[in-house]
Design a binder for these strands. Structure first.
Lengths: 256, 256
DNA sequence: CCTTCTCTAGGTACAGCGTACGTAGAAGCG
DNA sequence: CGCTTCTACGTACGCTGTACCTAGAGAAGG
């Protein structure tokens, strides 16, 4: 943690002679992480909006029209504010996305303590994430694009660590396990979304694949096609692979 | 699914009286999937560029300046072509990204046949993917964003199916396994990239996390922090989790 | 051969994006 | 009270993807 007053000196923007003049405050070093910036400093007029309301507005737009429709102008308009006013709350658009992420992460219903059944607790977390992802179709893409760790994500992380405590794994290993676990669920949700988005795309893909299988260049693909049964219920496929992932996490490997 | 000739009717752009006139060809329905469009039809002047050269140009830009620097204008300029000429080869920017994806997928060195050691073959695939992702830092993000299945991806898929044939799993299950497997590697590579990108960001994150751990609101997080050893070699962490993933794939669960 | 049709090349233009910058005024602190 | 620091927001810039249009190249049909 650097002292809050020392300027780095490498970022002088104006004339160099004014570099060290104490009259120029040179906004010392705003943290890049939005959660490190206080929402309110106490000085000046009180803000007309809150991070929560901004996130809610953005989420409303994303739910209704997709993530691409979330622009600074749109969100500001939804709040009844001027476009540039939004930049008082959110220094860059990235941070707006961080707010959205953490807001939906708040939708988890986390029990006060683990039930004792690790498998069940993990399965519950996975299904909750799938539900949330279905409510907010843009979520998987965002989750895959940026890590982010807002307050609600911290709560989730703490809960995950609590749930997996009985495995005997060390803290680092459990964090890796969480990444693996979340990653799987997120990717599944993401795939579900893209598949649902374009029926035409999916139909073309099937045609393309079977044509490729027919060509003879991909014998194993052809064989897989031949032996594949009906398209299979996605929910069942999810549970099946989820089981494998949980087993992978719970199986001891001798390393911490 | 509408028959392939009937116009939807909602897309008439010109005068409606010319709608069904046979003289107007009405480019019947170009497939959305770029791999379904022939690269060359045979009529007209021969194109000045190829899909390969276009992909190479785009990849060069992305490698040097990141994915955001890949714009239609930039790629066209790199080819010495006018911006709009690019649209003769690539109907939308998405398809340019598809070309890039499949081109780098061609960098896999796939042995002509599986070695017989499933674990070793899978580990090799994973390490190759990690290498390719390190050569092309933009790859993980792209891979996570869109499925895509170009010719090289088909070759990869066929190989994966061949490698996993001895597991006794059905075709569908092995496809799911591939998704899990690729997803893990891709996410790991992606995380590695974002971590490498911003040292400042990472430092802030550590500060934020330890501050959160200190606050007492997240006891398990605090405990994980306390028991965590040194930051751990990323390569070792990769191999460790990769082992778990492979085990998850290889362990029979009674379902096909 | 010439005609015709289809293709490629590329310019112009538009709507929309993120955001740098500057100004005006309100609210807390000394 | 004044000083400082905040909020609000209009204007403007450079950039994006791409719709639309005009020329002209070259293969196919007569």
């Amino acid at each position: 943690m650097p002292s809050s007053k020392t300027p780095t000196g490498s970022e002088s923007r104006k004339s160099p002679d004014a570099a060290q003049q104490p009259g120029r405050p040179t906004p010392p070093e705003a943290p890049e992480l939005i959660w490190l910036r206080p929402e309110r400093t106490g000085r000046g007029p009180r803000p007309a909006h809150s991070r929560d309301s901004i996130a809610a507005a953005a989420i409303g737009i994303a739910d209704a029209e997709g993530l691409d429709a979330v622009s600074m102008r749109r969100v500001a308009a939804a709040l009844g504010a001027g476009t540039m006013s939004l930049y008082n709350y959110v220094p860059k658009k990235e941070h707006l996305l961080d707010l959205m992420l953490d807001a939906v992460t708040g939708e988890y219903r986390l029990p006060p303590a683990p039930s004792g059944d690790v498998r069940a607790d993990l399965a519950d977390l996975a299904h909750q994430q799938l539900d949330i992802s279905r409510r907010h179709p843009w979520l998987p893409a965002l989750l895959l694009a940026r890590p982010s760790l807002g307050p609600n994500a911290l709560r989730y992380t703490d809960h995950f660590l609590a749930v997996t405590a009985p495995t005997g794994l060390g803290g680092g290993a459990r964090m890796e396990a969480m990444a693996l676990f979340n990653g799987f669920v997120t990717q599944f949700a993401q795939y579900e979304q893209t598949a649902a988005a374009g029926a035409k795309w999916q139909a073309e893909l099937v045609g393309y694949l079977s044509q490729a299988a027919m060509s003879g260049d991909f014998p194993h693909l052809a064989q897989a096609f031949a032996t594949a049964g009906p398209p299979a219920d996605p929910d069942r496929a999810f549970d099946r692979t989820l089981d494998r992932v949980i087993s992978a996490i719970l199986t001891p490997t001798g390393a911490t």
